[in-house]
Write a protein that binds this DNA or RNA. Structure first.
Lengths: 347, 347
DNA sequence: CTGTTAGCGCATTCAC
DNA sequence: GTGAATGCGCTAACAG
């Protein structure tokens, strides 16, 4: 292994001190132009590369930030991470990614490891209801930023979308299309974002003078199977719904497939709207109405909130950013569907 | 900021030496049970946490590995990274992710930064034709592993799928379905994996005694628009094809949509097969035949190749792993399509 | 079993 | 302007 060259090596070669080399390399003003240039040149010649670890140990800054998400191979989190990465990388930060697989224990373990690794900040979409690990982070005075799935804590910043509004908009849209018997697939009511979407759904109904039927609200995990099963359940009701607002695109897809297989015409017999704007929603034969969560932007904003906090370590910043969700109306809910033109995508 | 407690702090409290504390913490055999337990207990009490940076500086090992991919928010790379992460995390390694956006300059910059950060290894799916940065990595004796998009270098390990075989299988399948006029959408012939798929396509034709028509081989980037455009081009031929093997699922989708809009019945009038097994291929109204690349497995294997190299730094290991691609036959190419059963997914 | 010493590579304070 | 000395937190070699 070619031994890495350090500032000492180049100091020795030039018969000066490591301190001088360090200064030259860091553009310290009090250094003669001659030596600076000499140092720079020989550093280049010797393939010198700064050891960031030493710098990190010295400065107490690792230039790494930790990002914790339930899982990485989903379009949404992949895009958020991409946004974070794109903002942080040019500023010299690296992103260390951890997955929790929705496990509370793994979340705790991830936080532990990131703290040990001396990350300069932690950005997380939490998959737990615990609070202790987060208090540890705060006590260490390490910037903590929640995105998407937040936890309400004093003094902690968060970047989320207005899930309530998303649920409201989607439901209102279905009502505007003439539907009144609207069911809701709620992924998991123990998770705040889904509760919020459900609240929005309910409020939209109330605002239009439509009664809320509890039997219209069904739990269905975020996959096709559960979406199909939910349809099965709903259609067995004495007074079945004619439309569904699903908090998950995958469940919405499953619902649509099940409805089709039973001969329902969508959107005329039955309308469906999803949530997340997963790529497939616009690829389908029947494109799916959904709510966009601006994942990339969420990541970028979260990253910038972190950067702000790094620049102002003295003052405590608490920033609660709430992005407005965008309803994307497509064929699955639009009774007068636009005809597709050749070689042109619908939205 | 609550000052971090170091081994010195706990040494002082116990009136012993930092070295002893270190030994106790690291389960060094030559230490009395009494002191070990005492140290452990007070460490706990004082909320001690090991500073990995110091350890890294001392040992020369950062316990970080760098992963470089063209982009992170695609299903394929997201899954590969997930695989890598799942293997490495339990071994105490962190994954630092970088994107090149297909830019050679960014790739170089990423490598630079990762080397500065003293990563213990670099796993990369390259998006360039350069070789110099990789030689730098090797010269530093840092494990380098290519996955998916490799570069052929002596002494360097790689984990890829047999793209040739994938192209062959898909094409052969179309032939078996009775098609002879088969076109090919080649994403980018400057990239090895696509050239290989194209070779497989050609060989399958040859093996069945079908002539290769150069006008049947069209460049189409990995998106729907280019897939549709390619269909337009192909159908204008004097003797248009009746089937397409596309090296990209997205282009295949675009092709299918364009064909449908022109009234073609798929798969009877025209068959299509894609590549990558993107999630949407099995969600579609018309499910799409494709080739699975076992992304998760690829990531896991790449990670394990890295781990092996770390364990045997003395001997030089060159491991070329080639995964067999799996052809997944779906409706877009199967003339006698299976009927979908309710609540049950096709594949 | 435990203490002493030294060094990983760098930046910074204090001298000169 | 530059050198000398120091410490970031930890482990390992050498003593005892």
């Amino acid at each position: 292994m070619a031994k890495k060259t350090t500032i000492y090596d180049i100091a020795k070669r030039l018969d000066i001190t490591a301190a001088t080399v360090s200064r030259a390399l860091n553009n310290n003003p009090k250094i003669s132009k001659a030596t600076r240039e000499l140092v720079l040149k020989t550093a280049e010649k010797m393939n010198y590369e700064q050891n960031k670890l030493a710098l990190a140990l010295k400065s107490g800054k690792s230039n790494n930030v930790g990002v914790i998400v339930p899982r990485i191979d989903s379009n949404f989190f992949g895009s958020v991470i991409r946004g974070i990465e794109e903002e942080l990388y040019p500023k010299g930060y690296h992103v260390i990614i951890c997955q929790t697989q929705e496990s509370e224990a793994k979340e705790t373990a991830n936080i532990d490891t990131l703290l040990n690794a001396q990350v300069d900040g932690i950005l997380i979409s939490t998959s737990s209801n615990q609070i202790k690990p987060f208090e540890r982070i705060i006590k260490k005075n390490i910037p903590l930023i929640f995105f998407d799935r937040k936890k309400s804590m004093d003094g902690v910043s968060s970047v989320v979308i207005n899930d309530y509004e998303g649920g409201y908009k989607a439901t209102k849209h279905l009502i505007d299309q003439g539907f009144t018997k609207i069911a809701h697939l709620c992924v998991d009511k123990t998770i705040e974002i889904y509760r919020e979407r459900c609240k929005g759904y309910k409020q939209a109904l109330i605002d239009s003078g439509i009664d809320i039927k509890e039997e219209y609200i069904v739990q269905a995990k975020s996959n096709r199977e559960e979406g199909a099963k939910a349809v099965d359940t709903l259609l067995k009701l004495e007074n079945p719904p004619k439309a569904i607002f699903s908090s998950s695109d995958f469940a919405a897809l499953g619902a649509i497939q099940e409805l089709k297989s039973r001969g329902y015409k969508i959107p005329n017999d039955f309308a469906v709207a999803g949530f997340s704007n997963e790529p497939f929603t616009k690829f389908m034969e029947l494109t799916i109405t959904t709510v966009d969560q601006s994942a990339l932007e969420m990541g970028k904003i979260a990253a910038n909130v972190f950067l702000e906090q790094m620049e102002n370590t003295d003052i405590k910043i608490e920033k609660k950013v709430i992005l407005e969700p965008e309803l994307i109306v497509r064929e699955s809910s639009l009774k007068t569907a636009p005809k597709k033109s050749k070689l042109k995508k619908v939205n």
